[in-house]
């Protein structure tokens, strides 16, 4: 990788840095670009904040305002579980 990269390459590398370790040549080229480019520096801080915020949300967090399990589905699943339980109950419950 040449030491002179442009904003497109620099922003891509800043994203990839969040997913894999960069090679030395990439780190050098990126570092060089960032010393001169405030737009890319800002982009890098912002996407890192996005990733860190995602990491702070536990997997079951409902920041998405998603709906609850619909009543009919709940009933259906309950029946499926009862059927499975009944099939097993013949063997005396606890193994």
């Amino acid at each position: 990788m040449s030491l002179m990269i442009h904003c497109d390459e620099a922003s891509r590398l800043q994203s990839e840095r969040l997913d894999r370790p960069l090679r030395l040549s990439e780190r050098l080229a990126l570092g060089f670009h960032l010393t001169m480019c405030s737009a890319c520096r800002l982009f890098g801080r912002q996407i890192r904040a996005i990733d860190e915020t995602m990491a702070e949300l536990p997997p079951e967090a409902d920041a998405h305002n998603l709906p609850p399990l619909p009543a009919d589905a709940r009933k259906r699943i309950e029946q499926a579980l009862e059927t499975a339980q009944a099939a097993n109950g013949n063997h005396g419950g606890a193994a």
Partner: peptide
């Protein structure tokens, strides 16, 4: 398992 559905059904679904 019915307790799973009551206690965690919405969380799992979301």
């Amino acid at each position: 398992p019915r307790h799973w559905l009551t206690a965690h059904g919405d969380v799992l679904y979301r």
